[in-house]
Amino acid sequence: MNAQNLLEQFLGTGAAQSVGTAVTVARDKVANNGMAGVAGGLAAGGLLGVLIGNKKMRKKAGKLAGGVVGYGGAAALGALAYRAYQNWQSGQQPVAAPTAASPATTEAPPADSAFLPANAPASDGRPFELALVLAMIAAANADGHIDAEEQKRIFERVGAAELGAEDKGFVFDALSKPPSLQDVASLAEGPEQGAEIYLASRLSIDTDHPMEQAYLDALAARLALPEELVAHLEAQVAATE
């Protein structure tokens, strides 16, 4: 199984070009189809966009935080979580846009950082990229809105994706029986992985829906994330919306 490729397929395939063109993809959708089906941010162009775009209209336009443009999907996710974590540790106030006190950074996490998914496995010993995929699927299903017809369309899109048979089987199994919140939270080894699981889940959710907000709150509690860190993670997501 190619865990890194699977995660990239969810977040948007490729390196700099995929992330950098997410804005254009989302804006084109807005221009051509209004706000319907806009996945926005990191989700534009990836399987996550299909997963959440089939649920309902998303009041999002694609806008990526300037500091992550130039990274691939998985690296962008790590960079967002890393920035939030660094801002939290330094005692800064959460902000959704760069300021003089909290400037945007173009630094990627250090090469040995736990914020790079490939550097450490999840608690079950499997690649952490798989934990992030499971987190996105579980979060997207938090309100139980994915009906049989929508699931069929998602299955068809996954079937057409550039994934190996084992990777597709992993996704099909997860879509057929989404993991529980407890299952997802238990995959995190340490606060860095916990922050990334929360961030991946938050990107898959519409917090205007009470059930989805309740899911996020419960997930943060299960991951034992400090409220201040969660606020910084929320600020990073706001910068991509």
Results as ranks from 00 to 15, higher is better:
N119Q: 10
A39N: 01
I146K: 08
G41E: 05
T240Y: 01
N32P: 01
A239M: 13
M136I: 04
Y82W: 15
F10G: 04
R126P: 00
K55A: 05
A185D: 02
Q151D: 08
S180R: 03
E241W: 10
A114L: 13
L225G: 14
R153F: 11
Q151T: 06
K56I: 01
A195C: 12
L181A: 12
L51S: 00
A3E: 02
I137M: 09
S18Q: 15
H232Y: 14
L130E: 05
L219F: 14
E227F: 14
A15S: 14
G49E: 01
D143N: 14
A15V: 09
E156Y: 09
A96R: 04
N119V: 05
G144I: 07
T105D: 08
V25H: 10
A238N: 13
A16L: 11
L51I: 04
E156L: 11
E162M: 11
P210V: 12
I205W: 12
G40D: 09
A220T: 13
P109L: 02
Q9I: 00
R83V: 11
K60T: 12
G169R: 06
R222F: 07
V69G: 07
Q17C: 05
E227M: 14
A65H: 11
T105K: 02
A75E: 11
A31M: 15
A31W: 14
S113D: 02
L77M: 08
A140L: 04
G14Q: 01
T105F: 02
N33W: 05
R153I: 07
E196P: 00
A39L: 04
A161Q: 03
E234I: 04
P127R: 05
E227L: 14
V68G: 00
L47Y: 00
M57W: 08
L6W: 00
A100N: 09
Y215T: 10
V69A: 11
I146L: 15
L51M: 06
T21H: 09
A111G: 03
D183S: 12
D147G: 15
M57Y: 08
R202P: 06
D173A: 15
N2G: 01
S201A: 15
M136N: 02
P121I: 00
K168H: 12
A122Y: 00
D173I: 04
I146P: 05
T240A: 03
L77W: 06
G67T: 04
K63Q: 11
Q93A: 08
S204C: 14
P127D: 04
